[in-house]
């Protein structure tokens, strides 16, 4: 009886959600529960929904998402560590009609690539920067990132980040929001269905702004988990993120239409 009912429901006309074809069939190289996969998917969903596959050029960073081009079914370039905004500048300046975005982690964007990030934003390059912030270097095994919280334990701060020695966690998103070149700056997450929907809206808004030729950089931070680096099971990692990351990195729009949100 139950099987028959399921058979009745599971048919093409009743489909409500399916992975977009703009994600390839390659198995994601990310750890179980990692937010990267969701972040990849929502970008590709928006590109798909807006019919922009042929107009899109993405840049993969160095970090866990170094292989992003294996998963997104679009033309992509892989950048040296931190240099994605420079690549994006080179592409967007010479192909101004294309939708160009970078996908970068916190080490890539806010440590080694700080200069490229700030100057691309300051020039107001009409690109989208997607910034995944999990407060840790995931790929190299969980070392301190520029965004590691004060007191947070990582493999290079095993007794907690000592800000007197190692500096303070860098709120680079607030920093780029101060620059006249950015037009839309927001901080999102992908740990709950509601958060994913909001983050997707922010991506869509950014792409629409870029497509409208509205000059200025759009910057979407996604605060995400690192289960392996944080040494927590995925669901607990998300809980830890809500309790520890969000108070320091509060979600919401930081700059809209070129104006800081009060």
């Amino acid at each position: 009886m139950r099987d028959e009912m399921l058979k009745d429901i599971i048919s093409e006309e009743n489909l409500v959600y399916k992975k977009t074809d703009l994600m390839t069939d390659n198995v994601l190289s990310y750890c179980p529960g990692c937010g990267h996969g969701t972040a990849h998917r929502i970008i590709m969903e928006v590109v798909d929904e807006m019919g922009l596959q042929e107009e899109t050029i993405g840049i993969a960073p160095v970090g866990c998402s170094v292989l992003a081009y294996e998963f997104m079914n679009i033309d992509m370039q892989q950048a040296a560590h931190g240099r994605a905004p420079a690549l994006a500048t080179g592409i967007k300046k010479t192909w101004p009609e294309k939708f160009v975005f970078t996908y970068q982690g916190d080490g890539d964007l806010a440590a080694i690539g700080t200069a490229e990030t700030l100057h691309a934003c300051n020039r107001g390059e009409n690109i989208l920067i997607v910034f995944i912030n999990n407060g840790i270097y995931g790929m190299t095994g969980g070392q301190m990132a520029p965004t590691t919280l004060s007191g947070m334990k990582t493999s290079t701060t095993p007794f907690g980040r000592d800000t007197a020695l190692m500096g303070n966690p860098l709120k680079i998103t607030e920093l780029v929001a101060e620059l006249p070149g950015t037009q839309f700056v927001t901080r999102q997450a992908v740990h709950t269905p509601a958060a994913v929907r909001k983050a997707k809206k922010a991506i869509k808004k950014s792409i629409e702004l870029q497509r409208s030729g509205n000059s200025g950089t759009t910057f979407v931070e996604i605060v995400s988990n690192c289960n392996s680096g944080w040494k927590l099971p995925p669901v607990q990692a998300n809980k830890w993120m809500v309790e520890n990351m969000f108070p320091f990195y509060p979600l919401g729009d930081i700059k809209v239409n070129g104006e800081l949100v009060k």
Binding site: R2, D8, I9, V16, K19, T20
Partner: peptide, 24 residues
């Protein structure tokens, strides 16, 4: 399965995109 309302929340948060959802 009797409780499923086809809201797709599971699929939306699935990092690996492995869930397909139907509703009738």
């Amino acid at each position: 399965p009797d409780a499923c309302i086809g809201c797709a929340n599971c699929a939306i948060v699935c990092p690996d995109g492995v869930i397909t959802v139907y509703k009738k």
